[in-house]
Write a protein that binds this DNA or RNA. Structure first.
Lengths: 231, 231
DNA sequence: CAGTGGTCTAGACCACGGT
DNA sequence: CCGTGGTCTAGACCACTGG
């Protein structure tokens, strides 16, 4: 009895053939039926392998036309945007979050000008500092749309960060993320204990519920991002 | 005859229950068998939906223990690191790539100091500028390990960017990516026509073949990254 | 139209790991 | 131990789309 072939094995063997240029970039793969015959397994098993490869951006699939190796294989990676708390815990650092300020009023000009929100909304603004072993790691500025999340006003964000509270209050809501390199404003630099105009990664999150913005978060980060993936 | 239920439908209905807090964060889901009974479909269909949700970081699954809603749902996103060429084409801009310089020799000090490569390797260094409609968009500095990719020396990277050539030459090799915010060096700023010390996103790619570094790319970017995903 | 991928089914066996 | 998820099978029907 030969060892049974699994979808991971099929994926591996296909990858080998692509890497060895037996199946060059842009070339057509055999159909699922013929691959199943070759590997002596069910078509569903081949299908699972091919679906995986397509998700990874390595092959393109079309009905009738069949599967082919991407001529420009996408470099698709999975990125996990972790909470600062999670990152600190994974590194074994003591996590702490402090609320620095809290105000209520109209959205700031830039937010309206960038078209992120309508000017007539009332926003709860919280500035919070995240520390790892006492050292500043990230400054978060959170604007919560008080018209949509009125009960946010009842909360004190001294121990729980606004982003964590929002996540628990609105499980699984969508976010649009933008990553920018910015020069630090002097007040931010002071808080993070860095030089004025030091370069920093700034992540802007628009938190959406059915096309309505429930909150906007600006996270100014001291560290960097690391990703691993296919090239 | 009722409409047949597909795995996407099951995923949607599960998401609804999580969003409505019928199944709170951290709570256990019914087993695949009971869900299949409830939805009147095969277990494989439920399984496919649950595997999807697990990949999205929304639920955690363990044998015997069953599935439960992640207590801290991960914010997993897919990010596609596109070639500058691809990005320009998608935006309808004229893409162009110029080789600025090309030298050969030992790896630079920082590369050795950061432990990215052994000092005794010979590297081919190419500096190339990527333009969209004539405007500088990205500066790439590529070091190719000439010991591992000797035939790179035969190539002229005046029209084809080193990263594209490498990708075609080594299909599907792995890369480790790091994203940093940096202040531009004055020479770089001059080339990109920006202010000295302007903040920029710098992507560093270590290109690997079986634990050996075949190339290192530093891409200094003018633009930003945008991602969409679950919060 | 005909071949391809997309999906579902009903059943099966197995590995893992709480209890 | 034994229930759970992980996977495979053989077969089926359908939707899409290229020729």
């Amino acid at each position: 009895m030969v060892a049974k072939i699994g979808y991971q094995d099929i994926r591996t063997r296909i990858l080998e053939r692509i890497r060895s240029k037996e199946w060059p970039l842009g070339s057509a793969l055999p159909s699922e039926v013929s691959l199943a015959a070759e590997f002596k397994c069910a078509r569903a098993t081949v299908n699972r392998a091919l679906v995986l490869l397509a998700e990874e951006g390595i092959i393109d699939r079309k009905r009738k036309a069949g599967s082919r190796v991407s001529d420009y294989p996408k470099k698709v990676s999975r990125i996990e945007l972790k909470l600062v708390r999670t990152e600190m815990e994974e590194r074994g650092l003591q996590y702490e979050c402090k609320q620095l300020s809290r105000t209520f009023g109209a959205p700031p000009d830039w937010m309206v000008n960038e078209g992120r929100i309508e000017p007539n909304q009332q926003m709860l603004f919280i500035e919070s500092l995240h520390l790892g072993d006492g050292k500043p790691v990230q400054l978060q500025r959170t604007w919560i749309n008080a018209s949509l999340i009125p009960h946010a006003a009842d909360h004190n964000f001294d121990s729980i960060a606004p982003c964590e509270w929002l996540r628990a209050d609105n499980p699984l809501c969508r976010g649009n993320y933008e990553l920018h390199a910015v020069a630090m404003e002097s007040e931010v630099a002071k808080i993070l204990k860095l030089d004025e105009k030091a370069p920093a990664l700034q992540l802007t999150i628009d938190l959406m519920r059915d096309d309505e913005v429930i909150a906007i978060i600006k996270a100014i980060n001291v560290s960097c991002y690391e990703i691993a993936g296919a090239f």
